[in-house]
Simulated assay, not measured.
Amino acid sequence: MFKKAERKQARLRLALAGPSGSGKTYSALQMAKGLGSKIAVIDTEHGSASLYADAADFDVMELHAPYTPERYVEAIQAAESAGYDVLIIDSYSHEWTGPGGCLEINDETAKARFKGNTWSAWSETTPRHRKLTDKILTSPLHIICTMRSKTETVQGEGKKIVKLGLKSEQRDGTDYEFTVVLDLTHDGHYAVASKDRTRLFQHPELVTPETGTKLLAWLNDGRSQEQQAEDAVNEAISKIPMVETMHELQSVYAATYRQAQEYPELLAKLNTAKDKRKAELTQPEEKTA
């Protein structure tokens, strides 16, 4: 069934992309300070995040090669279990281009299982990468991923090399997974939005704790899942007394059960209404004299 669209409360999924020296790590930490008080960093840059220990209060896990998707997933799970508010993955690029990352995994898989056919090998590599993507998208933490950028070029007329701009070192299409993608400039460390579902980044700006604060306000502006579940249960309870068959009753109940099941009080209200109408529908008709 179609229903009116509503923006829900959400967790941040943001990417900071830029060349070396553009300020990705520092900017991520500044933004994180505005998002929450407990900050964790997965550092694949050989301890570079710790150089900013005087700029923010955070805990760090240094992740070394091999940079497999599974090791990233384990690190994210560890951050979740420890109760952090914000997780910075610095850098997400290593999972793709680093030693033991997906490009290397695919080459090795092609040699071992597909007679050197790297195209066929993606049938095994892609699901592994996808599990990490899904983990990032479904985590209860606010997540900021830094990604290295490099200049993308093509060969034009007369074999002339034409620069197309900067391209993130990650799988093509990765930008689509994030709510916001900010490209950092080398000169001035300004952030320019190349993707922005929040519509908060209309002009280049320096990333500060206030950047995180305004993002948090936007994220919290939607209706909570519990509020949406309560509305759905109340609507179902209003419909249940009017259903005429058990099939209709089951349809109304099933459409709301998934939203209510995480909230015992709401589920109890839904079950009470359902059981009452079920008893009425299954009650034998009184015989007339």
Rank of each mutant, 00 (worst) to 15 (best):
Q170N: 12
G101R: 01
R128G: 01
R148A: 09
L216I: 01
V73I: 15
H46N: 14
A82Q: 15
G212C: 05
A75K: 13
S81R: 15
P99E: 03
D183K: 11
A40W: 12
S168Y: 12
T44D: 05
A255N: 11
S37A: 12
A32G: 14
I76H: 09
I105P: 02
D231Q: 15
P140A: 06
D172E: 13
Y253F: 15
M242R: 12
P204Q: 01
Y190K: 15
S238H: 08
S37G: 14
I240D: 05
Q202C: 00
E177I: 09
N234D: 15
T25V: 07
N106I: 05
T282L: 13
G34D: 12
P66K: 02
N234Q: 12
G165Y: 08
A10F: 00
H186I: 11
A255M: 02
A78K: 15
I240C: 13
A193V: 10
T288F: 04
Y190G: 02
I240E: 06
A217I: 00
Q250W: 00
R148V: 06
D183A: 14
Y92F: 15
A279T: 09
G101I: 00
Y67L: 04
T174G: 05
Q77M: 15
V86G: 07
G34M: 10
T138G: 07
L14N: 09
L87H: 10
Y253M: 08
E104C: 05
A260P: 11
T133P: 01
L29P: 14
G100N: 05
P69Q: 08
I89S: 01
G18L: 02
S194Y: 04
A236N: 06
E280C: 02
D54P: 10
A49N: 03
F58W: 07
D196L: 06
A78G: 14
T126M: 07
A279K: 12
E244R: 14
K8V: 04
K287R: 11
A75L: 10
A49V: 05
G173T: 05
T68K: 07
R71I: 05
D57L: 05
M246C: 00
I42Q: 06
S139H: 12
P264N: 04
G212F: 01
H189W: 02
C145M: 07
P209Q: 00
Q283N: 11
D57T: 09
L103D: 08
I143Q: 03
T97F: 00
K167N: 08
V252Y: 02
V192I: 14
A65M: 03
D172W: 03
N220H: 02
F201R: 03
K214M: 11
S22V: 04
H189R: 15
K135M: 02
C102M: 13
S48Y: 06
T272Y: 07
N117L: 08
A82T: 09
I144S: 06
S22R: 03
A279P: 04
A40G: 13
K163Q: 12
E62V: 09
P19K: 13
E95T: 10
D175V: 08
L14P: 12
K4F: 02
T272C: 04
D54K: 12
